[in-house]
């Protein structure tokens, strides 16, 4: 571990970062900022993974971070393509406007 920094501190930082990401997804209207917030949440999870991998001396934590990053890359490619497609069709990326399926 980092000298003088315990696992708890890293987990608290990770939790606060995750909450900020969740807040961003919930309150923002712009789809791209929601995307950035999702990246923040994934990073918070990665931080917790790396912290645990370090404190337990385990390999699987790092492998999981690796896969999380791969999934994040795929997610961002698809998501941004969807945003560009929505923008092209409707001229807006305000998520409040995309409500055709609302009953």
């Amino acid at each position: 571990m980092i000298p003088g920094v315990s696992m708890i501190h890293i987990l608290i930082l990770s939790g606060v970062l995750f909450t900020l990401g969740a807040l961003g997804v919930l309150i923002r209207r712009n789809a791209i900022v929601m995307f950035m917030s999702i990246e923040l949440m994934l990073n918070a999870a990665n931080l917790a993974f790396v912290g645990f991998a370090r404190s337990m001396g385990a390999l699987s934590g790092q492998v999981f971070v690796f896969f999380v990053i791969a999934v994040a890359a795929a997610e961002v490619a698809i998501g941004l393509a969807l945003i560009v497609a929505v923008y092209r069709n409707r001229g807006s990326i305000d998520v409040d406007m995309v409500s055709d399926l609302k009953g």
């Binding site: 209207r29 995307f35 923008y87 990326i93």
Partner: peptide
Amino acid sequence: YIDAIAILIIIAVMLTRAVMSDADRQIN
């Protein structure tokens, strides 16, 4: 993350920039 994902996001911001003016209400 920084090289690929963040740059991709910024390019998407530029592609869709004219739509949502910065002065609009940002919070739903």
